[in-house]
Write a protein that binds this DNA or RNA. Sequence first.
DNA 1: AGCGGGTGATAAGACGTTTTAATACAGTGG
DNA 2: CCACTGTATTAAAACGTCTTATCACCCGCT
Lengths: 344, 344
Amino acid sequence: MGSVSIREVAARAGVSPGTISNVLNRPERVAPQTRERVMRAIQELGFVRHGSASTLRAGHSRTIGLSVIDIGNPFFTDVAAGVEEVASDLGYAVILGNSAGARDKEERNLLVLAEQRVRGVLITPSDDDPARLDALRERGIHVVLVDHPAHRPDQCSVAVNDFSGGQMAAAHLLSLGATRIGYVSGPGSIRQCVERRRGVEQAVAAAGLDPDEAIEVVETPAMTARDGQRAAAALLAAGLPGAVFCANDLLALGFLRELLRAGVRVPRDVALIGYDDIDFAAASAVSLSSVRQPTHRLGRIATELLLDECDHPDTHVHQQVMFQPELVVRESTTGRALAGRDDA
Amino acid sequence: MGSVSIREVAARAGVSPGTISNVLNRPERVAPQTRERVMRAIQELGFVRHGSASTLRAGHSRTIGLSVIDIGNPFFTDVAAGVEEVASDLGYAVILGNSAGARDKEERNLLVLAEQRVRGVLITPSDDDPARLDALRERGIHVVLVDHPAHRPDQCSVAVNDFSGGQMAAAHLLSLGATRIGYVSGPGSIRQCVERRRGVEQAVAAAGLDPDEAIEVVETPAMTARDGQRAAAALLAAGLPGAVFCANDLLALGFLRELLRAGVRVPRDVALIGYDDIDFAAASAVSLSSVRQPTHRLGRIATELLLDECDHPDTHVHQQVMFQPELVVRESTTGRALAGRDDA
DNA sequence: AGCGGGTGATAAGACGTTTTAATACAGTGG
DNA sequence: CCACTGTATTAAAACGTCTTATCACCCGCT
């Protein structure tokens, strides 16, 4: 039942426990010969450092938390993959929390992270309330916002311009001759949904239309394909606009599916565009136009900022990074079959 | 800079530190009135238990590890969602590791988990070598295999019959009149791929064909859509069989995409079936036949087994759970448009 | 009054690591 | 031969919690 401690390694190598610790944490301070001997003892005994003891004494861990809204959404798994790459490279482990859009779940997850004394947290907040995050910061846990611009200059964030993305999507639909746009939004509490909507309104206004009349908004409780299906059913009953913009691709794919099931032709009867440009968007029944975000980079850069903040708190300067999204046009808004991603 | 310790809470509540610990861990042993007072002190001071100190002293944590092969695969995120639900309910946190199919990455992740002194590990091994897992068990870390049947009776596992699934898929293709089947396999090191292939061989033999002649195998380095696309390109060059079975849906979706791009009609020219029945399978350009697995349950049950093993080691009995997969027929093998999942 | 049993709370010693200050030692220049 | 500098190592004190044994107290009973 082998919990080998630093002590036994020390005995085996004929040195003091402190030296083992030095080999582990500042190898350069210990003579090559001793180092070698210690390494061998570690190998032979199968020693594995007790992370908790280390964290307890050192006052901080080599762990960061990642809190996302929906781990079932490829957007977030792409982000997570980017996070994991960087963290892993710098020797940090990642604890993943899925808030599923529920505020209390998010809160529970953050509590767990606080208990684990994570070094920092990457979070896509499920609402706009900064109180919880300030509480973390007061505990000495660094926080970087992901896919959410920081309001204040004393914190890091990495985001993509959602207003602009909404504008692009709507402008594209308008350029196809649409005069009425359905906007399938996620929960009104999610900032991204609100921003994209503002973008739509702006584009509609710029086209000389009245936003109140030209935009039909459907709010869904979450942002899954199922919610998209339901939204489509609702709009089919209420009167379908000739152009629809869904706040993410999962919604759009569900929406599309319901339309096809009902015999609606896309894009002939309805032009449809999603958001995120997840991999599956290009492969759907009618390939889906979308607004692409640099997902993977989002994760990478957020993690780099966070770990810089953790490891070099004195030289670190807070940054609010803002990317620009990119319109990707496919069949669902043009009818041109197999208009694929250029990099595919 | 608020690290409030149990000590300060004790002072505030006018009791000893030991009592705080009791309130936290065995509330029933402390008088309701004192408990109340302590709770208030905890609230007022914003105390958060130091997980590492707790783990160090108690000898075990409230954390489990989950190691998967590809977090970008919806199959695994579905599993992860199930895991997270159960773990969270029982007060456990989940540390997620993505091996990306690489053995050394998996090893690194397991090391991190061992350092964190996780209570147990749920793992879908990326190869069939039991040594690493035995090493974990020797450290007192419980291990449950996910999507991988245990060879020995002294460990828990939750799996789905891959042999049977491969058989189903192949039998289905054969029933359509195919005489030659392409099998797009993932890496040969992955057990699931091998089992499914064995199923295919069995089905082919049962149909009176010679497996060596009737089956064309393409091994891919990983199991992503991109690999599927490459496989399709390869088979297009080498001569496409009239029926193709991909070892998972990501491969199949990529495969499908490349076929359509090349002007091949599905299912008329090629019948195509995938595996896993991820959500996106039903929504693809030509909706994808697949072999459905009870993904979410896989995660839930594996976690229940693991935590039972952790929390009740004396009464726990090891189980090897084996589910049966289910054939889901859609357009890509029948041409019947919009043959959807019955629950959609 | 004395005794036994039960309940609640406490004191103090771990747990395994990191870190600080101290020590030993070899080499160098005077 | 001494004082000094540096380098390599060590001893010992933390870190915050849990836990074991102990203690104080009250109640009811003889």
